[in-house]
Write a protein that binds this DNA or RNA. Structure first.
Lengths: 119, 119
DNA sequence: CATAGTACCTTGTAAAGCAAAGTACTATGT
DNA sequence: ACATAGTACTTTGCTTTACAAGGTACTATG
């Protein structure tokens, strides 16, 4: 337990991840059809930690929005899996998110540079 | 009002901003002592929209955490202003946030590249 | 048939941005 | 003197969403 009065870098990281999660999740599904545990593993490999309780509702949300769809598929080692793929709409939104990301990137990197100059 | 069933890019942007806001705010204060409206203007210039109701609580939070401090100063054109500066601790945290940011950047840009390759 | 492993789902909680409304100071025009 | 406008700081209620924790259910193995 972290004292409430202390700045909590881990929490800050979590907050930063929080806002942007949809984007890397869509990116991963765009790479190739994946199911939940798959996605979590791939995100972890990219240093973006996420847990089940976050991902399942997020995938539902994306599906209700028509950005992804799934097909059930048997597995040799357990219950069937929901394999997700992007819809046409999902691909469009992904493109837009990419440009939002690039914009944010430019903005913040400009601020960082500005700050380095003045120090 | 946006229909709930539609993907709302503005909301997505807002969510992304949400997690990361502390960082650019600290960057701006690091650049030079600033007061609230100042900060909002500079953020807007960097394409990071933010409103009063967001910034004031955020600044209070940062102050309670000991990352920033302020001094009252008279203004020729209205009520006095709270000019914020970074504390020593604030500068340390800012460095850490910079490295968190770089990490996130690498992670996501790697995913983007991966995705471009496979398409 | 009990256990372990895998996969999907749900509930309750907390954090934090935002819209909107409020308080208060200064300057300007009548 | 007083109304209006501009600036600045603050607060309240709402909404969204990640997470912790717990639950259901299917398959394989001993």
């Amino acid at each position: 337990m972290n004292k409430k009065e202390e700045f909590d870098l881990e929490n800050a990281k979590a907050q930063i991840r929080k806002g942007i999660l949809e984007f890397p999740v869509l990116l991963i599904i765009a790479e190739g059809r994946s199911y939940a545990s798959d996605i979590i593993k791939k995100l972890k490999k990219a240093d973006l930690i996420i847990v089940e309780g976050t991902l399942y509702p997020l995938l539902s949300r994306l599906r209700h929005l028509g950005l992804v769809e799934y097909t059930w598929e048997e597995s040799k080692s357990g219950p069937p899996r929901k394999y997700y793929t992007l819809t046409r709409k999902g691909r469009e939104i992904l493109k837009q998110l990419e440009s939002v990301w690039k914009g944010l990137n430019n903005s913040i990197n400009a601020l960082i540079k500005n700050n380095e100059k003045n120090s």
